[in-house]
Every structure is written in C-alpha cells, then in structure tokens.
Design a protein around this nucleic acid. Structure first.
Length: 231
DNA sequence: GCGACAG
DNA sequence: ATCTTGTCGC
C-alpha cells in the first residue's frame, strides 16, 4: 500500500490513473481538522528531486519537517498529466519521516482538476487513504466559470469541458495571480475551498505550502553541495 | 494539423 | 521545476 512503482510506460501510467479515479471520494468536511501536511518539491538538473512535508497545526503553526529525495536517474519524466509518477515517491518518503500522520494532505498541484480526474493530490489521497486537496499555481485542466474578481478571497468555479465542477479559481491576495483549488480525496468541492480559506495566508500561497516551498528550495541547495558531482 | 500543457 | 537581469513598487 505504500509502494509506488515507477510505470514502465505512459500507457501503463494512464491505465493506473483511470483505474484509481473510480476510488476517489468527493465528499467530506475538514471542519475540525487541525493538523495537515503541506507537500512541495524542488529539483535542479544534475541533482536529486527533494521533497518536503511540513506538519502544520492550524493553531500552533509548523511542528516538523519531513524530507524525501529521489535521485535524478530514478525519476519518471515530467509529462503534463502524470506529475504524481514523478513526485509522489519522494513525497511518500517525506511523509514517512513525520512523527505522526496528518489529518489531511495539502499538495502543490491539482486534485481532480485533471484530464483523467486524478491529479497528484487525488493520487496521494487514494494511495494513503487520507483526505487530500490540491492547490496549484497554474491551470492544467478546466476553465473558470466566470471572470475572477480582484478582491482577495474571491473564487469562481472551475468547470470541465462538459460543465462539471472540478474546483475553484481562488484569489488568495489582491494583486496576485489566482490559485487553483480542487478536492483530492475524501473532501467535497466547497469543503476544499473552505479549508484553504481558513489557512493563514501572508503572501500568495497559504503559509504551510509557502514554508514547504522555502524548505524544499533550501534542501535542494543542500543536496547539491552534498550528494552531487560538483561540490 | 493546432493549441494546451500541474511541477 | 529551473534558468535568468533588470525593474517596478511597498
């Protein structure tokens, strides 16, 4: 259940996504949730992909940082729509390093707002049977239902080509580009947005994800001076 | 054939 | 994701 074998072809990967999409549960509230794990990764050509899982308590703030790394030679290539096969292995390692299991996963990427309904947040959620949601910095699939207002906190639904709601385009701060929020697993559409709205947000990204990003970038530099060619 | 395309 | 200089603005 924790294994995440690297697909030997895109066709196999696609089949797995189409099989797992049927396991995604699009209902659930995150009302009383306090502890989450924010996931982000960094990578520099020639070095390993480093992943970070920040265990974050909504009342106490950051509690612990788990790290994971996958050597470049072992990485699945980056192909739009198949991000989980590249980054999830490193995320699973980072999550195993945490002192306790989080109540929900906050992932840098899409949830169900994906061509086959299984973005990295959904894939991880189903794989670990944990509630999860995705917060992406750009669009992969779907279109905004209407223009997004400039006001911070505003949101408009993200619709599939057939008109099905996939998530929300969300303005976390005025003057910044929007974020794309979609449920991953065991959480509803509105509930996913409601959860993101109650995360502390000083800049564009919710604080837990921003911290994970900063830490991943820092770890990437560290990995460079330690385990790679140069020095 | 053309455009789109998480990180 | 990474690369990459300057530049606009609080």
């Amino acid at each position: 259940m924790t294994l995440f074998p690297k697909p030997q072809s895109l066709e196999k990967a696609r089949s797995l996504q189409e099989a797992l999409r049927n396991r995604v549960v699009l209902e659930g509230s995150l009302e009383g949730v306090r502890r989450l794990a924010a996931l982000d990764a960094a990578h520099k050509k020639g070095g390993p992909l480093v992943a970070v899982a920040v265990l974050y308590d909504l009342e106490k703030g950051p509690l612990f940082v788990g790290r994971g790394r996958v050597e470049e030679a072992e990485l699945f290539p980056y192909v739009p729509g198949f991000l989980s096969f590249r980054e999830a292995p490193a995320y699973l390692e980072a999550l195993r390093a945490l002192p306790e299991a989080p109540e929900v996963l906050l992932v840098d990427g899409q949830g169900i707002a994906h061509p086959r309904g299984l973005g990295i947040a959904s894939h991880l959620g189903v794989h670990l049977d944990l509630p999860s949601l995705g917060v992406a910095k750009s669009l992969l699939y779907g279109r905004p239902e209407a223009p997004l207002p400039q006001e911070a906190g505003s949101a408009v639904r993200l619709l599939s080509p057939e008109g099905r709601p996939l998530g929300y385009v969300y303005r976390s701060r005025t003057g910044t580009r929007p974020l794309y929020v979609s449920p991953g697993h065991r959480v509803g559409l509105e509930e996913a947005l409601a959860f993101v709205r109650r995360l502390p947000t000083r800049y564009r990204l919710p604080e837990p994800l921003r911290l994970a990003h900063l830490e991943a970038t820092r770890a990437r530099v560290e990995a460079w001076s330690t385990g790679s060619p140069g020095s």
